[in-house]
Amino acid sequence: MIRIAIANQKGGVGKTTTAINLATALAATGWRTLLIDLDPQGNASTGLGIATTSRDVTTYDILAGESSVVDAAQPTRIPRLDIIPATVDLSGSEVELVSVEDRTHRLDRALDDVPAGQWDICLIDCPPSLGLLTLNALTAANSLLVPLQCEFFALEGLSQLLQTVERIRARFNPDLAILGVALTMFDRRNRLTDQVSADVRECLGPVVFDSVIPRNVRLSEAPSHGLPALVYDHRCSGSVAYIALAREVIARLPSLRQAA
């Protein structure tokens, strides 16, 4: 099973929106997809229509060793897309795991126990921090996808994240690769947006995806209806951009799903 962490320690950059819509696009193209909500805010769960009262087994239970990934996963309204939801209880796991010996590998070992062929791909929606939850995700992942908001402070945050990736490679997960950087909240009316985009591409080159996610009202509206934007309005500019991003992601993944 291919595992992709979607992470950026900066909040409000479109991580959850990217996770939801990318997972939906992958499922729509035939990939059996699992989305793990690793953010205590539980926004990915809400955005896929999972009510708080329906989150009986969550990512907290997996990290605590009280549930398997298969038992915690529940179907969404999107065919071939399952989710492991999150609640605010997850915020307590960072403190509870401090004294646990294998605290950085809890998610990795839980995913290792998933039967072969259960899912083709797993996306992990990380919280806006570089704490123990994100560390678990990056240790468990094969690759990292970074949503990057087109604003002045973006490059500074990206630099910090890339340094963290290098430390994780050295200590926990030498196989962690950077799948790509996705530019989000792109506003063509703002000249600074163009400048940031150009700077990122000059700095990182082909690591940056060609597809750019625009600022789009429909992307913001969709979660309130418990739907991905691709279902809420598949013709809006945001949905079209995420479909294009999904094509690029698939092109960068192993041709054989079993390879990972």
Rank of each mutant, 00 (worst) to 15 (best):
M1L: 12
I6T: 01
A7Y: 07
T17C: 15
T17Y: 09
T18F: 01
I20W: 07
A25P: 00
A27V: 08
W31H: 13
R32G: 00
Q41P: 03
G47D: 06
I50F: 09
T52N: 11
S54N: 10
G65W: 05
E66F: 07
V69G: 00
P75S: 11
P75Q: 06
T76S: 07
I78H: 04
D82L: 09
D82F: 08
I84A: 13
L90R: 06
S93I: 09
S99Q: 15
G117Q: 12
P127I: 13
G131L: 10
L132K: 08
L133E: 13
A137G: 08
A140W: 06
A140S: 05
A141P: 04
S143F: 02
S143A: 14
P147L: 01
Q149L: 10
F153L: 14
A154H: 09
L155E: 01
L162Q: 08
D175K: 15
G180D: 08
A182W: 02
L183K: 03
N190R: 08
R191C: 05
D194L: 11
S197P: 00
A198I: 09
C203L: 15
C203M: 15
G205H: 02
P206D: 12
D210P: 00
P214G: 11
V217Y: 02
S220Y: 01
A222F: 03
H225T: 13
G226T: 07
L227W: 04
P228W: 13
L230M: 12
L230H: 03
Y232R: 01
R235T: 12
G238F: 13
S239L: 00
A241V: 04
A241T: 00
Y242R: 01
L245H: 13
L245T: 07
R247F: 08
E248R: 15
Q258C: 05
